[in-house]
Amino acid sequence: MDEKEKPDATPSDPSQWVDRHSDALFGYAMLQLGNQEEAQERLQETFLAALQARSTFRGESSERTWLMGILKHKIIDQFRRRKRDSSLAGSEEGELAMKNIFSDKGYWKHEHKRNWADHLDSQAEYAEFLLALELCLAKLPDRMSKAFSLREIQDLKADRICEILGISATNLWTLLHRARALLRDCLDRNWFGQQKQGQQK
């Protein structure tokens, strides 16, 4: 809608992009990709794509939001390209990992007594949380962490995720179920565990 264009909208200034946005965008890519080189490549692609699409930036959303939108697509493209590499081996790996979570009879193997906050007080605490999440996600089998990223970090709907990863809905429910159980376990040990040390028995 052209009439919406504001005459005083600040044009995006590419000479400031790295300075202003690279930390947030790189961190966001690292969280989902768990690999420095790949995150760096996706970020570089994002900036170049943004340069070409600069006329589409209207200042209606923030520059950060606009760039983030492009980066999300670059991450999805990478997930798509890799779908053939991660074959069935991943599902065996997942099954094996679940043996640490449930006993043969189907009960929880470990107690998780800690109370998690649903909201943190400071930026620093969120930074700790994101770091723990990044480390725990990186430990998951490949497809599991992709499924979780797309669902919880990118907030995509199930059918879109199935299409991106080339899997059935049943596969997706299994991947997400396992990812959540493993992440909860990992976070409980590595993040909340350290934070609430004073309250341990």
Partner: peptide
């Protein structure tokens, strides 16, 4: 809680300084 923590963390990504420790 995991979901709402991620949601909150992602919201703050839009405007504020980076919360991530991984940096270039």
């Amino acid at each position: 809680k995991l979901r709402s923590l991620i949601e909150n963390a992602m919201k703050s990504l839009e405007s504020e300084e980076s919360l991530f420790k991984s940096r270039l």
